[in-house]
Nucleic acid binder design. Structure first.
Lengths: 339, 339
DNA sequence: GGTTATAGCTAAAACGATACAGCAAACTTA
DNA sequence: TAAGTTTGCTGTATCGTTTTAGCTATAACC
């Protein structure tokens, strides 16, 4: 059985002694519907299998306007969080007969437009997008043009668009309460200086947890630029320490790594001198001299869900907006346990 | 300027008052060649821009049999090495006007066949493949059918197929000489029990370096299963220690992480009790209590090169087989320095 | 002035799959 | 038995491009 395709509907039709149209009906499972005889159906299917028929995707797309392909715009596919997401989406989509095209926006709106544009050109049926700062207009335009989209990781409220993301507020809230409950006096947070919902939610989760614990005046947030978290972490951490912070809640994967580097460089003892709670699991977390506690995003579940919502939208023409939130899990190791 | 496309060649033709064929000539840069008048060319281009023309990829592919898309079959896109590779290939391809479709084989030949098949269906122009164990027949068949392919990471010798990979032999050789030069007495290696060229080359690099250093009798290789390196690392490392090994050369990314976990668990001091040299950079390497030395693969260079070789093959119909080897770099940290 | 070049364009047939309209034969029905 | 119904199939237009062959003016030539 060859992997190579070259037989067309016409070839099968010729060999089976029927018309191409009939072959098309049969192979699309519409034989019955089109009153094709039972034995003809069987015969056509047999011939198609013998000839190892593989439909020409371009022709199908051209004719139908559909491609059974999903476009996925990630921030950066080489970032472990998104790499795992990509993998999850690939698998979930394949299970439902869809292929996936990826593109990286690099958290830069003009690049995102480019990628979106290129994916639409390839006539994907829908777009799963991790929207970056400043991409609201693009998203709005896509929605206005009825391009099926589902946002991932970062919802956009007050916009008519579905999304799948972790419940960032709840996860952060829980994480910070854990640090406080663990005995840390002044918990600080390091976050990105962006307005995207996921980041705002994480910040709110932190702030509310602090406030509820009677530590409103201790709220201390260091903001780092998404473009260069490493350099800024090195600058900010000493400042936070000076201000009496004895534990840090780190708002993302990359921020966590940047801060761990800085912490190692400066030579701060974890958790003795400083409690740490990061985001998204990571080999480095486990191998750090004091294993790092973190908020775990259920990536496979998220990936599955986003594909499900997308395909629901595509195939059942669900117009309604669906904002799915999935709960995160707190993974507790040494770094957040005061001793 | 809308991101959405719907204008066709015909629309432009109508608006510009010419035939669709002429528009096609002009927009493909073949205006001159087809003796289209200078001002007609300018006019058509202007109209096309005004209408924000985006060619229909499906129609183009159907007509031409080409898709300006490359299929890339990786081992697992969520593995950092391949995630970075994916990113590099994406960028390099985009720069040349190609899109990329990814698939993961999970180091399992039947899955690889599935992915290859699905990519060919999408009529990619060529395939970049990280071949897995047991995929020789598939590769051979692709070659036989003139599917343009370039292997990545793992060459297959004595097979008529181009490849781009690091010079694994040289890198390993150098790495092991470094460990020996650093004063370690008995350097062991942990490798996968597979026959793929890249692994064999790494093993040969190790063996030859040992032999050249007069340590032929000290050659000690622990093999782990690619399906579960973690469990096996935990079993093998104590055995190697018992046999007097005082430094380990770890043959891959994943093996390195698996071993670091085991080493941390068992409580071995690096580099005091054991020297370590791993493969492929990693955040965990830097953050380990004793930063880990490693063989660095020049991923962006490799990715660029593989796309270059592929496109050369596609566009210049280069039939000749091209086996590119790129030198790796030894990154020396604490873990490989005896004190 | 009649033939041949040449410049500038168009018509139409593909590529492969799909869907609509419709045709012929067999079978009902009154 | 004539009219109508059902069954099983086919012809053909279509999606948006590309490409080959060819058409019509005008210019060049002897």
């Amino acid at each position: 059985m060859s992997i190579i395709k070259k037989t067309s509907l016409k070839d099968i039709a010729a060999k089976a002694g029927v018309s191409p149209a009939l072959v098309s009906f049969v192979l699309n499972g519409k034989g019955r519907e089109h009153r094709v005889g039972e034995q003809t159906i069987k015969h056509v299917i047999k011939v198609a299998e013998e000839m190892n028929y593989q439909p020409n995707v371009a022709a199908k797309s051209l004719r139908s306007g559909k491609s059974r392909a999903l476009g996925v715009v990630l921030s950066d596919i080489s970032n472990p969080f998104f790499a795992q997401t990509a993998r999850g989406i690939e698998d979930a989509a394949a299970k439902r007969g869809y292929t996936v095209l990826f593109g990286s926006s690099d958290e830069y709106a003009p690049k995102m437009d480019l990628v979106v544009s290129s994916l639409l050109n390839r006539s994907v049926d829908g777009l799963i997008i991790v929207p970056c700062e400043g991409s609201e207009d693009t998203i709005r335009e896509l929605v206005r043009n009825d391009v099926p989209i589902v946002l991932f990781d970062r919802p956009m409220r007050d916009m008519n668009v579905s999304s799948v993301s972790m419940n960032n507020y709840a996860a952060s809230h829980k994480a910070v309460l854990h640090l406080i409950g663990s005995g840390f006096k002044k918990v600080g947070m390091i976050a990105y200086d962006i307005e995207l919902a996921h980041m705002q939610d994480r910040v709110r989760g932190y702030s509310d947890a602090m406030e509820e614990s009677g530590k409103k005046s201790d709220i201390t947030i260091g903001y780092v630029k998404i473009s260069d978290p490493y350099k800024m972490a090195r600058k900010i951490i000493p400042r936070l320490i000076d201000s009496g912070v004895d534990a840090l809640f780190l708002a993302t994967n990359t921020i966590s790594l940047a801060c761990l580097h800085a912490i190692k460089e400066i030579g701060i003892k974890i958790p003795g001198q400083m409690g740490i709670l990061g985001f998204d699991g990571n080999d480095a977390f486990n191998l750090f001299y004091s294993p790092i506690s973190y908020v775990e995003q259920p990536i496979p579940t998220l990936a599955n869900k986003v594909v499900e919502v997308m395909i629901e939208k595509l195939e059942n023409r669900m117009a309604l907006v669906n904002n799915v939130q999935i709960e995160g899990k707190l993974v507790i190791r040494d770094s957040s346990l005061r001793r």
